Amino acid sequence: MPGIQASSAHQRRPKASRRGRFAAPASVVVLLFILVLTASLAFVSCSSSSAVAVTDLLDRAVQIDEPPVRIVTLHPTATETLYRAGGVAVGRDTSSQYPEEVLDLPTVGSAYSPSLEKVAELAPDLVIIEALTQASFVDQLEQLGVPVIAVRAASLDDVSKSLTLVAKIIDTKKTADQAIAEIQDRIDTASANAPEGKSILIFIADADQNIYAARADSYPGTVAALLGLDNLAADLQGASPYTGFAQFTPEMALQSTPDVVFTITPAPLPAPRLSQLLPMIPGFKEMPAVKEGLVVELDPVLFLQAQGPRMADAVEELLDIVNNL
């Protein structure tokens, strides 16, 4: 049935789509996309720039995602390295007693058996250990979900590397560089003033009075070498409960003629000092240096327990002793 057709002049205009009415111009869409992309890239860049990848003194690759602000140290070497590099800790092992300000920090047990529970209670975002004596702790500590790095001070190079490592993580490169330069300068000055041709032995004893001598790879052996002293036990072989030491028998003592004998007594007073006991031990009491009273007790903290940035202190103290005998 024919209907009435509307004339072309009066035909209804097609409605604009809702999308067409509200869509932004293409140029605005592109601009918004660029802004969002730029912001995203800036965020990723900022996040990645705060992350640090390092290799510690156990040759482990460690990723630090954020700058740490709650650091726990589990060894005097770790504690002193952190503070000399310009950092601070929120917890420490009981043997860490330098610098003085760490004495106010909560403790997490000894360096030999730290408490993982106490470490966790401090909510650390970084744990620093000592490489030679605490490597076995790494797996347990990492179960806390915390990055762990190891430092070491078996040599002057180790001290410098450890300071550089920690400084990279806490962003204190200038402080660490200054510390490294000062340590090197002090050791160089001491070495220039050391006597030539002076032979030594450095002894330590266990609870059964077995005597051990410091080799070249021990910390006190390293300190002596920096002064050019002739360590008669430098290449000595044998087992010992002390890192870098080897057993030294009475028979060896009878055949040794060092100019000076140094002793280290780890046990605190009132335990007798090894320097007092040597004149009563067969073989050792016959050594010329012992007979002449040229036996000097060394500070066990400086020469054994707190290996690290105070290496220059140990070098200067040893030099002072040798030059004044």
Rank of each mutant, 00 (worst) to 15 (best):
G3H: 03
I4Q: 13
Q11I: 15
Q11T: 12
R13D: 13
K15D: 15
R21M: 12
F22H: 12
A24S: 13
V30Q: 07
I34V: 14
V36W: 07
L37Q: 08
L37R: 06
S40L: 14
S48V: 05
S49D: 15
A51W: 03
A51C: 02
V54T: 08
D56T: 03
D65G: 05
P76A: 04
T81Q: 05
R84N: 07
G87Y: 00
A89W: 00
S95T: 09
S96W: 09
Y98T: 04
L103S: 11
L103M: 12
L105W: 10
A111R: 06
A111E: 15
V119C: 03
L122I: 01
I128P: 04
I129S: 01
I129K: 00
I129D: 02
E130A: 11
E130I: 01
Q134A: 07
A135W: 02
F137W: 10
Q140E: 10
L141W: 05
Q143I: 08
L144W: 12
G145H: 09
P147G: 02
L156E: 08
V159H: 01
K161A: 14
T164N: 04
T164G: 04
V166A: 06
T172D: 04
T172A: 05
K173T: 15
A179F: 01
I187R: 10
A194C: 12
G197R: 03
K198R: 15
S199L: 10
S199W: 09
I202H: 10
F203Q: 07
D208A: 15
A214C: 13
S218D: 07
L226K: 02
L227W: 00
L229P: 06
N231M: 06
N231K: 10
L236P: 01
A239L: 07
S240V: 03
Y242I: 13
D259M: 05
A271S: 14
R273Y: 00
Q276H: 07
K285W: 13
A289K: 15
V295D: 00
V295G: 08
E297L: 09
E297M: 09
D299E: 08
V301D: 15
L304Y: 15
Q305R: 00
A306E: 15
Q307F: 04
Q307N: 05
R310V: 11
M311H: 06
L318K: 00
L319A: 02
L319W: 01
N323F: 00
L325W: 00
